[in-house]
């Protein structure tokens, strides 16, 4: 009897072959998506190292994504000669950070009151807050300009405080109108609602008040929501363009996005634009990379797409 040449491993081999193909397909798909989304950033960073003529001659070829040819840091040098870039970056960091930190406190407190405290009319208030999301900023910009031009402010003159009118051309006019944010309140509200109320009751038995419950119970469990709100508040603050154009005249108060217009002269400095864009994209990428796990968790748990 002749043994049939049967490979004892044939069966088991066939089984993992399919997952391997699938895995390869999945990896290829993922790699394709990475390339697709990374391509503009790579093009920007690589072009920032090339002279204008080469940027255009490389466009349409693979060379556009490779740091080859006449590569140098001249565009970065040019950026600092043309624009007070360091000042603009500092301004944007200050404006965005204060807006984010203050926004986290104010909006989470509002959401806590709406989700954990029982009071008459809270559903109406929540609906009214959410309803404001449908109003685009462009329609509010002019009325807001009128208001901030009439609002009082205390200005320090040495040791003396003076009451002045109008917030134009200040840091506060770029920060205060954007701290309270309906979307952040909604996101916190959704997340807080998912935290069991039994924890509040247990804390209350221990003698905790509302603020203690907010600070010691709810906030420590809301890391993903905090990360998401931080990123979603930071991005528009960092990318703010129209509002600073309208309310800021002094160069030393301008944020980074207004700075990009410095390069659009009759002869556009494309290489410098790429260098400046690379510089101002780095903080955004760094923030996202720092919070990406919490960000994804929060998006997954709240079902909200930013």
């Amino acid at each position: 009897m002749t043994a049939t040449p049967q490979s004892p491993t044939a069966g088991p081999r066939a089984t993992p072959a399919r997952p391997l193909t699938r895995r390869a397909a999945a990896h290829t798909l993922r790699a394709g998506l990475v390339l697709f989304f990374a391509a503009p950033l790579v093009f920007m960073a690589v072009s920032s190292l090339k002279p204008d003529g080469q940027i255009f001659s490389d466009t349409g070829t693979i060379k556009a994504f490779l740091p080859i040819g006449d590569v140098s840091l001249d565009n970065y040098r040019g950026v600092f000669e043309r624009v007070p870039a360091a000042q603009f970056l500092l301004n944007s960091i200050l404006i965005s950070t204060v807006t984010v930190v203050a926004g986290l406190v104010i909006n989470s407190l509002a959401a806590f009151a709406l989700s954990r405290m029982r009071w008459r009319g809270r559903k109406v208030v929540l609906s009214a807050i959410i309803a404001t999301l449908i109003v685009p900023f462009e329609t509010l910009a002019l009325p807001l300009l009128w208001w901030v031009n009439k609002l009082p402010w205390l200005t320090a003159n040495g040791f003396q405080l003076t009451l002045t009118t109008g917030w134009l051309d200040t840091y506060q006019v770029q920060i205060l109108p954007f701290i309270a944010n309906a979307f952040s309140v909604y996101l916190f509200h959704q997340y807080f609602t998912s935290i069991p109320t039994e924890l509040d009751e247990a804390a209350r038995i221990e003698g905790a008040g509302f603020f203690t419950i907010y600070r010691r119970v709810v906030l420590p469990l809301s890391g993903p929501a905090i990360a998401t709100v931080a990123i979603l508040t930071f991005l528009p603050a960092w990318n703010s363009y129209l509002w600073p154009l309208m309310v800021v005249q002094s160069e030393d108060l301008r944020p980074v996005m207004v700075g990009i217009q410095y390069f659009f002269q009759l002869n556009v400095a494309w290489g410098q634009i790429m260098a400046y864009s690379t510089m101002i994209t780095i903080p955004v990428l760094a923030l996202f990379l720092a919070f990406q796990r919490s960000f994804v968790n929060s998006i997954a748990s709240t079902g909200v797409k930013g």
């Binding site: 300009l145 134009l168 207004v258 700075g259 217009q261 410095y262 659009f264 002269q265």
Partner: peptide, 20 residues
């Protein structure tokens, strides 16, 4: 006070609205 060209007209119109 110098403004970037691409943003200049918007800044002037906003300043006119604020009487500044």
């Amino acid at each position: 006070q110098a403004f970037p060209q691409g943003a200049y007209n918007d800044s002037v119109v906003a300043a006119a609205a604020a009487k500044k």
